[in-house]
Simulated scan of single mutants.
Amino acid sequence: MSLTSSSETSLIPAREGFFFPAEWHPHVATWLSWPHTEASWTNERQELMFPAYIDFIKAISDSEQVCINAHNDIVIQAAKLRLLAAGVNMDRITLLPHPTNDSWCRDHGPAFLINPTNKQRMIVNWGYNAWGGKYPPYDRDDLIPVEIAHYRGLDYVTPGIIMEGGSVEFNGAGTVLTSRACLLNQNRNSQLTQAQIEQYLCDFYGVQQVLWVEEGIVGDDTDGHIDDTVRFVNEDTVLAAYESNQNDDNYPFLQEIHQELKQMRLLNGKQLTIVELPMPDPVVSDGLRLPASYANFLITNKSVIVPTFRCHKDQPALDIIGQCFPGRQVIGIDSTDIVWGLGSFHCLSQQEPSV
């Protein structure tokens, strides 16, 4: 496989020794897609969310490169002005003229695979349909993985099915966690059975085990992405969102997830260690419950960037996450205006691992 040019391959990545590493694996960079339309935030809301978005970029850039898909030259110049005004180190920023429809790079961005044996990488070009066709157009977002493959000079493989980065969570040791509510939804891959989807996950993510929970949280328009509910912090430990208020709409869903997690066994037979992560108080805007969750954090080379919600549970949540990531700085950034777009820091980003 060439490291200097990019082409489509028909190889099955797992058979060649490629796999998707855990998020704590060292990064070359983190990828974002710069907000430029009213797809997720109205103009007024977009102005409100930009300070937190810039803080997010600044926090990532403290320990790694930030590569940003920027729709066109006008967007690139606008982004530069905002970043420079905030004092961001522009040596750590790469703005690329990659046209996009929306900003959720976790889901439309590339899945980078690594092969430690031959020191090579490749990209999986999953299909993207804006969470079941909810938010057209999404044609430009669907092209982003191939754009980045060409930019990086990496070969890519196209499985031909819909898959979103926020729907899968990896321990780096052969296991992926996901939800039936999302991956088995008829608006994604209605032609596939659960067993067939599991085979795609094994073949193209290089895992040997798929563990399923049932649901997601209230207000999540992705139909139940795992990155709002359960996150691996090491090979056998998960942070699991937990709701203590029995009257909260999320209570039964999160209780069910906890029961499912307790029944799971990893490839080595071990039970998961489950660390409870409180849910914030409900974040409601215009009568709509938003998908606010502390679990939607991003792990970078030196930090964990966590959404906060102007809530008394913010600091306890940061403390719990900090205990799970010794050696990394935990950075809380107010995500109240960002989550109005129905996602947060993990949804906005996709890490690029080193080999």
Rank of each mutant, 00 (worst) to 15 (best):
W24V: 07
D141S: 10
W126Q: 09
Q199M: 12
T37C: 00
E64S: 07
L211H: 00
G269C: 12
L288I: 14
I331G: 05
A195Q: 11
I217F: 02
I257D: 04
N115M: 02
T175H: 02
D249E: 15
S244M: 11
W24A: 12
R289S: 08
E8P: 00
P116M: 13
H27V: 06
V168M: 09
G127E: 03
Q199V: 08
V284K: 09
T229G: 02
K80L: 14
S63D: 14
I161S: 02
A149T: 00
A149G: 03
S40N: 15
G322D: 08
R310Y: 03
A130D: 13
F19G: 01
T229K: 03
E235F: 03
F112D: 09
P26H: 05
Q255Y: 12
L143M: 12
D227H: 07
H225D: 10
L143F: 04
A78I: 01
E164H: 02
W41C: 07
V75H: 11
A240I: 06
P35V: 11
N247L: 13
W31L: 15
I57H: 02
V157F: 06
V210H: 02
V306E: 05
L81N: 14
N43C: 08
A52G: 10
L154M: 08
A195F: 04
D142V: 00
T175M: 02
G17T: 07
V330H: 05
R15G: 12
A149Q: 07
G332H: 03
V157Y: 08
M279F: 03
L298I: 12
V330Y: 06
L154R: 04
E256M: 14
L288T: 14
V304K: 05
A85E: 13
N118K: 10
S285N: 12
N43A: 13
R106A: 09
L318G: 06
C347D: 07
Y242G: 00
V213K: 05
N234Y: 06
V306D: 11
M163Y: 01
S33I: 03
T222Q: 00
D107N: 00
L3C: 11
I74G: 09
D223L: 05
L239P: 08
L84Q: 15
G287S: 10
E147K: 14
A181D: 13
V124K: 08
P136N: 03
I331W: 04
I68S: 13
F56W: 04
E16V: 01
I114G: 12
H98G: 00
F19A: 06
S61C: 10
N89Q: 14
G327F: 06
K262N: 13
F50I: 15
A85C: 08
L211S: 07
S6F: 05
G133V: 08
V283K: 04
G132N: 02
Q323G: 15
I161H: 01
L348S: 12
N187A: 02
Q186Y: 09
Y294N: 09
N69K: 04
G166D: 02
G165Q: 08
L254H: 06
S63Q: 06
P280F: 10
P136M: 08
A195M: 07
